[in-house]
Design a protein around this nucleic acid. Structure first.
Lengths: 113, 113
DNA sequence: TCCATTGTATTTAAATTATAATACAATCCT
DNA sequence: AGGATTGTATTATAATTTAAATACAATGGA
C-alpha cells in the first residue's frame, strides 16, 4: 500500500483497514498496532490513531494484551455506507464540472478496463 | 465554498479554480490573488501557492501588475484530464471494496438524484 | 510464575501547512 | 507623472501531523 502525500496517513490507514474488512480479508482479528505499522512502514502511533477513531465509529474494539477485533455486524454496516459515500462524492465531483446525471451514467457505461 | 479540514487548503483552491475553468465560469481572467483570498476567507499566500502550482501545470499564466489569465486551450486540456482522473479514482475505490466493473456500472445506472 | 505481546500514554522533535505583516517591482489607468 | 493594483518574495509565528523513543498495565501462553 502506498500513501498519497496530500492526505494524512492515519486517514488512509482507516480507509485501508475498512476496505480489508469489506473485502473479507479481515474477518475478526485485526492486525496488531505494531504489526500493521511494520507492514505499512509507519510509526505505531499513526496506526493507533487510526484504530482509536475506528473504535469511536464502532467498527473495531481494542483490548490491552488481547488485540483488536472487528465488532459484530461491522462489515454489514460498513459495506453500504462506504459505497454510498464513494458514489455520492463521485457524482458530486462530476456535477461540479458541469456534467448532468445522464452524462455521468453514459460516461461510466463506456468505461473499459 | 467550504473547506475539507482533512486536506491542505491550497489543493482545494486548485481544484476549485480548475472546476470554474471547466464550467466556463472563468474564461480568460482569473481572480486576483487578493480578491480570491478575500472571497474564500484565506490568506493571500495560500492562493498564491495554488496559482504557482497551476502555473507550473501550464493552466494559467501570471504577470505582475497585470493579473492572472487562463492559458490558451487550458480548458480543452483540463476537461478530459479531470474527468478521467475522477472516473479512474472512482472505479479504483470500488474495486478496492471488491466490486466488479459490471457491478459498478449497475450501481451507477441505479442512481437517482 | 514468568515473559513476550498487547493497546495505551507521554514526551520530544521534525516537517508541513497556514496565517500575518511587510516589502518590492511591474503594470495599468487617470 | 503619479497612484492604485498586480504577482512575488521574505520573515516570523502558530497549528497540525508524523516520527521516535519510551514506559506502563493488562493479557495470554509456556
Amino acid at each position: 500500500m502506498e500513501f498519497d502525500k496530500s492526505r494524512p496517513i492515519y486517514l488512509q490507514i482507516k480507509r485501508e483497514v475498512k476496505e480489508r474488512i469489506v473485502r473479507g480479508e479481515i474477518k475478526e482479528e485485526v492486525p496488531t498496532v505494531r504489526s500493521l505499522a511494520m507492514e505499512l512502514g509507519v510509526n505505531p502511533n499513526t496506526v493507533a490513531k487510526a484504530y482509536r477513531e475506528m473504535e469511536r465509529e464502532d467498527i473495531i474494539g481494542s483490548w490491552v494484551g488481547r488485540g483488536t477485533w472487528v465488532k459484530d455486524g461491522a462489515r454489514e454496516r460498513l459495506c453500504p455506507d462506504m459505497i454510498k459515500e464513494i458514489v455520492d462524492e463521485f457524482i458530486h465531483r462530476l456535477v461540479s464540472l458541469g456534467l448532468s446525471l445522464d452524462e455521468i451514467k453514459k460516461l461510466v457505461e463506456g468505461v473499459n478496463d
